[in-house]
Amino acid sequence: MKYLDYLRIVVWFCYCVGNFYTASTGVPNFPEFVAVGLVDDVQTEYYDSNTQRAVPKQDWMEKATADEAGYWDSQTQISQSNEQIFKVRIDTLKKRFNQTGGVHIVQVMYGCEWDDETGDTNGFSQHGYDGEDFVVFDLRTKTWIAPTPQAVITKHKWDRDTGQNEYLYHYFTQECIDWLKKYVGYGRSTLLRTDLPSVSLLQKTPSSPVTCHASGFYPNKIKLFWTRDGEEVHEDVDHGEILHNHDGTFQKSVDLDLSSVKAEDWGRYSCVFQLYGVMEDIVTKLDPKVIKTNWVKPSDLIIPIVAAVIAVLLIGLSCSSLCLLCSLFVHRFVRTVLVW
């Protein structure tokens, strides 16, 4: 069995639950505290400091009350408590970094992963400040890692709290995993589905890279790449990030720069989409006839303009109006050539 085929089988059985906290100051028209829960990149719950209430974002998350009657009240209380804690943390970090006003953001990401094929589990807790890592929990050693000098004080303080670190180890290896299994059970029909994407080839101008764009796939465990004669291409390739669609599916693009490729060699290239859990690939051969573009050759603009001039003459526009129309066309044509 090929390694990639093995991954398609194994990765499919991996699940992850994550919680994301964002506390901010100085950001206009944005809640000072936001808490979001995700299961396999599907948003499951939400809380912010304006609404003051944790709510489910998926219908199947309503089932959580069957295992814990006051689940949503409990989640609300936890988030309200964290909101106050994070307000204090922002003030502490501003002093630590010798800051006063301005925009500042504290972010925390924590959760766990479970592979129901192997039984392997993992937990993570990462804290960041103003877009940089601040402290990270090492599950193996039950200690904290400080990537920046300003975090060393926090590391030593949290390392001394061995009781809290033992609790975190228990939470990430047992309690979090138990809840993850419940969440997967609640949303099995959603989380275990597979949606194949539509794949398109796009190009702005003849000299631009060709973009292979896949949209509408689920889950986000995919690989999108270019090949030449069946072998993956790494040079002159630019991979985009996986992005969310409004309907819960995902999209991704990968660009291929063909500036140094002869036109007769284009047929040797293909874009390949692979969805883990699905054995059949979607292969789109690089063919100029199927590339979508909004670029129009300047010569192609002449015919519509000539037709417009003839139409103007037929309806009896004055000579001055006709000159105005022509001058506008020339002006727009020149701007198109220079700006585009």
Results as ranks from 00 to 15, higher is better:
Tyr218Met: 04
Leu202Ile: 13
Gly123Gln: 01
Trp144Ala: 02
Glu166Leu: 11
Glu231Pro: 00
Ala151His: 01
Pro209Gln: 09
Val152Cys: 01
Arg228Asp: 10
Thr118Met: 09
Asp120Glu: 14
Lys142Asn: 09
Phe217Thr: 03
Asp138Trp: 04
Thr154Glu: 11
Pro219Leu: 01
Glu166Ile: 06
Tyr129Arg: 09
Val136Asn: 10
Cys176Ala: 13
Thr211Val: 13
Arg188Val: 12
Phe217His: 09
Gly102Arg: 00
Thr173Trp: 03
Gly131Ala: 10
Glu132Leu: 11
Lys157Gly: 08
Tyr167Thr: 11
Glu232Gln: 14
Lys155Phe: 03
Val106Arg: 00
Val184Ile: 15
Val152Ile: 14
Asn165Leu: 03
Pro219Phe: 00
Lys221Cys: 06
Pro209Ile: 04
Thr173Glu: 06
Leu180Asn: 00
Phe225Gln: 07
Thr190Val: 15
Lys157Arg: 14
Lys221Asp: 07
Thr118Val: 08
Leu202Thr: 01
Leu192Ile: 01
Val199Asp: 02
Gly230Lys: 05
Cys112Trp: 01
Gly111Tyr: 01
Pro149Gly: 08
Asp133Phe: 06
Ser125Val: 05
Arg228Met: 12
Thr121Arg: 07
Gly216Ala: 10
Tyr183Gly: 02
Pro149Asn: 08
His156Lys: 14
Ser125Tyr: 11
Ser189Thr: 13
Arg188Gly: 09
Ile153Asp: 15
Gly187Met: 06
His170Ser: 12
Asp133Asn: 13
Thr121Cys: 10
Leu224Pro: 02
Ser207Tyr: 05
Ala146Ser: 08
Thr154Gly: 06
Thr121Glu: 06
Trp144Gln: 01
Gly131His: 08
Asn220Ser: 15
Asp138Arg: 03
Arg160Asp: 15
Val108Met: 14
Gln126Lys: 13
Gln174Ile: 07
Val184Leu: 09
Phe134Leu: 15
Asp115Phe: 04
Asp116Lys: 08
Trp158Pro: 00
Pro149Val: 07
Tyr110Cys: 12
Tyr169Ser: 14
His104Val: 03
Val199Ser: 00
